[in-house]
Design a protein around this nucleic acid. Structure first.
Length: 290
DNA sequence: AAGTTGCTCAACCGCATAGGG
DNA sequence: CCCCTATGCGGTTGAGCAACT
């Protein structure tokens, strides 16, 4: 199906890594004669390669104006911004970064940026926050609250409290702490979530199956206060509505540098339609996928 | 030291597109 | 228009290397 590849008709053409000698031949030829026809070039230059392979080698490696070395922070931010508007249009992105090739940017995206964004709770495709619990965990970990961090995920089992909520709100309103960079503290986040997924999933499912808040026998005074605030039998979605608005505010405060002006509205829309409102099974699934 | 796992990135593959006849 | 060819583009692969066990 489809057109055969340009070089498949001659299977004795060389493939695989280029040798320094081949590089030399190609460079010398192009410097002398240019590359008006990639198809004809290998034969004229005396290379046992297909034109496509020659073109790729020149564009991605041998071109004299190619920029080598690690991407700078500015380049990374530019790539993120361009990707948020252009998507996987690597060649268009590359055209904005002198000396960088589409292949190089694509590799950089797939091996670095994509992972960074994911760990920061941002969907690398949509550039919008992934509605998962990592956000809340990250936030709480930075607040250094005298609570075990996983408490936010199992409040319904033992010790959520409205002091926690108050602290979060205080943080959002007063922002007395330096703005967290969501690109940091990734390992910690991952570990916490993994541990939770491993250790607490049964609790979680047990809770999901029984979505009313019942005071636990070991419930402390803070827990009792929560019961007072929300009342027995409070449906979990009500609690999540509060947490949703908090995570939204926190994200607005801590968005990645250089986002486009319309990005905050996209984030808002995303949060308003996220899994907090679509049920806990979905939410739990997203947690396990992290 | 040896084996395993994970990561990076150069290179490939196949489809899309442009342009000429 | 339609067909054909060359080039461009984006997704994917796998060799080589580093880190880990």
């Amino acid at each position: 199906m489809g057109r055969p590849p340009c070089c498949s008709e001659s299977s004795d053409l060389k493939k695989g890594p280029w040798t320094p000698e081949e590089d030399e031949v190609l460079t010398t030829y192009i410097q002398k004669h240019g590359h008006e026809s990639w198809r004809a070039l290998p034969k004229r230059a005396g290379l046992n390669r297909c034109g496509k392979s020659c073109r790729l080698r020149w564009i991605n490696y041998l071109r004299p104006d190619i920029k080598r070395g690690n991407f700078s922070e500015d380049e990374e931010i530019l790539i993120i911004n361009l990707h948020s508007t252009l998507g996987n249009k690597w060649s268009r992105i590359a055209s904005q970064l002198p000396g960088r090739t589409d292949n190089e940017i694509k590799n950089f995206w797939n091996t670095h940026v994509r992972k960074k964004l994911l760990k920061a709770g941002i969907d690398p495709k949509t550039h919008q926050p992934v509605p998962n619990i990592t956000f809340l965990l990250d936030t709480i970990s930075k607040l250094n609250l005298p609570l075990k961090v996983p408490a936010i995920m199992s409040p319904w089992i033992n010790n959520i409290n409205d002091q926690l909520l108050n602290n979060l709100l205080q943080f959002v309103n007063m922002t007395p702490l330096p703005k967290p960079t969501f690109l940091d503290s990734q390992c910690y986040m991952e570990e916490m979530v993994n541990q939770y997924a491993i250790n607490r999933s049964e609790d979680w499912m047990e809770y999901v199956n029984n979505v009313s808040l019942e005071p636990q026998s070991e419930c402390d005074s803070i827990g009792a206060s929560l019961m007072g605030s929300y009342g027995n039998g409070t449906e979990i979605p009500e609690l999540f509505t509060d947490l949703k608005s908090m995570s939204h505010n926190l994200f607005m405060e801590n968005q990645l540098p250089g986002m486009s002006p319309e990005e905050p509205m996209n984030l808002k829309n995303s949060l308003e339609s996220n899994a907090f409102e679509t049920g806990f099974d979905d939410y739990y699934e997203s947690l396990l996928k992290i």
